[in-house]
Nucleic acid binder design. Structure first.
Length: 586
RNA sequence: GCACCCGUAGCUCAGCUGGAUAGAGCGUCGGACUUCGAAUCCGCAGGUCGUAGGUUCGAAUCCUACCGGGUGCGCCA
């Protein structure tokens, strides 16, 4: 069940009945910010008081009275100008958690009524370039959102829209012939490709013949010249080897790797269609959409825009705008998706608005969402540069390695202090789980929409609100079962709330489904991070205050074991949705 | 010129789409390990929510203006 949805529905019905309203109205249910006000508050009375011309507190009292009969309500009190403060019934909540134990996969969270086929486009690294920390966000966010959607019951297609096509390949081809080193390309492909690209693009700036040659080779490549095609294919293959290592490290996977090149053959047709429909027209030799003149539905913002949306260059080459339009059509016609998500830096917001607007003009009705995210900034507050000569390149591979190293150090400390019984050979996998988990959590805990400052120390920090804090709760839970010599799955309650810490923990556990639902509808994984952090805090408080194995009686022990099991499982599943491992010990 | 985003504790950030006395982490300082794991817990300190108006029972949140920072806008992706 989704608790908030359930409560909102029941409370709204109560409001309508209590006030004898003809139309249904929202109870304006919100979680309270202060436990003194109970668990949830209803704000409807104040809004309706104005509307109905009656004192809000009088309405609130009627609503409260109506709710007092509900089985999930412990108390309903009127407070302040007309709040109705709801305190939920402990036994009702405890039963929800106990019931959830029977559902190992979804923890009692019911799936959406109408599952959709959703394609999610994320990561999208460029061929011939190292993945750097800027790629982390799209990759991690996309993966977490995909998992949340799947958890809610949607069918998800993960697509890696590789940057494997475009003008840089002309440069790379002539560059490789001019400066390339076959041995280096084999040994460390991306380093060599980046070196060659840098030399070639510098040369092209001052050498018109060289630049011309690059354009010629690009044209040959795009026309299917076998030799250039083979070289290009090699660039793609060696890059794929490297990025796939990173994905394996991150535990990220894709169903499709349909890069830009996959749509090349469709581009001429797209432009032709746009012209035929009067959406695009020729101008100064190029083909473009002029938002002021096209007929049909166009967002007001674009209407006002002077600059056209270019779909073909004067020299006949296509742009990524054309590719993206072709991609939308492919996803509709060949994949039949209901929804397409683009997890891409928010600097491309205008680009996607334009792509989507063109798609609408072409009659595309599926939901198209640009899931934009903030830019990763360096310590100076400027977008993090990685290609620049100044300072060592901070690649994703380097970041992940450092995170793992620090985690390994930490594990060795624990072993030395005797807190941890870990075999030497377990260290690498454990360090990976903790190190990579810390990096992922540090990224995901930020609100997706805002820029954030990249700080390596913070990212591999293992204290406070950080990945390992959540993993630690899971490991502690697992440790209790190890010590008791029983299986987590055999702890089935029933849960009874006796201590205040148990009451708080239960109240957190029942809100898991709502958190995941928000991630899947708002595309904001940090909401789940926050939930799991709160869960961890409340578990730690419970752990501090309540004996589990040495509980005062057998029923309490069974209840608490079930509570520990529910926490462990929710933490494991929740971390799983974030793409973070939950080790049994750490 | 047009469009968009952001200003919240010393630092990094939440604040669930308008609710009550604005919350975390880090950092500082002080406590808690013979007791289910101290990567933990407890406590102290820290705020004109950029500024000024407006909307209303009620604003960090919505509107307007201004200040400050950033981004994107014909032939890159």
């Amino acid at each position: 069940m989704l608790l908030e949805r359930f409560l909102e529905a029941r409370a709204s019905a109560a409001v309508q009945a209590a006030l004898e309203l003809a139309e249904p109205t929202s109870a304006l249910l919100r979680p309270t910010q202060d436990p003194r006000f109970g668990d949830f508050q209803l704000n409807a009375a104040m809004a309706l008081g104005k509307q109905l011309g009656r004192p809000p507190r009088e309405l609130a009292e009627k609503i409260a009275e109506k709710l007092r009969g509900e089985e999930f309500v412990a108390s309903a009190e009127v407070a302040g100008p007309g709040f109705v403060n709801l305190t939920l019934d402990d036994a009702f909540l405890a039963k929800l958690v106990t019931d959830g134990l029977g559902d190992a996969e979804h923890l009692g969270v019911t799936p959406v009524d109408a599952p959709e086929k959703v394609i999610i486009d994320y990561s999208g690294p460029n061929i011939a370039k190292q993945m750097h920390v800027g790629h982390l966000r799209s990759t991690i966010l996309g993966d977490a959102i995909a998992r949340a959607l799947e958890f809610r019951g949607h069918q998800v297609i993960r697509d890696n829209h590789l940057g494997d096509w475009g003008t840089q390949y002309g440069l790379l081809i002539v560059g490789m012939r001019e400066f390339g080193d076959a041995k280096a390309l084999e040994a460390d492909p991306i380093v060599e490709l980046e070196r060659v690209y840098k030399l070639a693009s510098e040369r092209a700036k001052n050498d018109e013949d060289f630049a011309e040659a690059a354009r010629r080779e690009l044209k040959k490549l795009q026309d299917g010249d076998p030799e250039n095609r083979a070289l290009w294919k090699r660039f793609v293959d060696v890059t794929r080897r490297t990025i796939d290592e990173i994905y394996a490290e991150l535990g990220v996977r894709f169903d499709l790797y349909l890069g830009e090149s996959a749509y090349h053959d469709a581009l001429a047709g797209v432009v032709r269609t746009l012209e035929e429909r009067g959406i695009a027209r020729e101008d100064e030799g190029a083909k473009a959409v002029f938002w002021g003149e096209v007929e049909g539905e166009v967002p007001a913002k674009l209407r006002k825009q002077k600059e056209p949306f270019l779909v073909q260059k004067r020299d006949g080459a296509y742009l990524y705008s054309t590719t993206d339009i072709a991609t939308v059509l492919y996803r509709r016609d060949e994949l039949g998706v209901d929804r397409a998500l683009y997890v891409v830096d928010h600097r491309q917001a205008l680009h996607f608005e334009q792509v989507f607007a063109v798609a609408r003009l072409l009659g595309v009705t599926m939901e198209l969402v640009h899931v934009g995210f903030g830019t990763v900034l360096g310590a100076d507050g400027k977008p993090l540069k990685t290609r620049d000569a100044s300072g060592a390149a901070l690649t994703l591979a380097v970041l992940l390695r450092q995170a793992k190293e620090r985690a390994a150090e930490r594990i060795r400390e624990g072993m030395a202090e005797g807190r941890l019984k870990v075999e030497e050979h377990e260290i690498p996998s454990l360090a990976k789980a903790v190190g990579i988990g810390a990096v992922k959590y540090a990224d995901l805990m930020n609100n997706r929409t805002t820029d954030y400052r990249f700080d390596l120390d913070r990212m591999v920090s293992f204290t406070g609100n950080a990945g390992p804090y959540l993993q630690y709760v899971h490991a502690r839970s697992a440790s209790i079962f190890r010590k008791a010599g029983i299986d987590e799955a055999s702890a089935v309650g029933p849960i009874r709330v006796t201590a205040p810490e148990e009451a708080k923990l239960v109240r957190r556990l029942v809100r898991f489904g709502d958190a995941v639902e928000k991630v899947a509808t708002l595309y904001l994984p940090h909401i789940l991070c926050e939930h799991l952090y709160d869960l961890a805090s409340e578990f730690n408080a419970f752990y501090q205050a309540c004996k589990v194995l040495d509980a005062e009686d057998e029923a309490t022990k069974q209840s608490r074991l079930a509570l520990v099991a529910a926490t462990a499982r929710q933490m494991r599943v929740g971390l799983g949705l974030l793409g973070i491992e939950a080790p049994e010990r750490m």
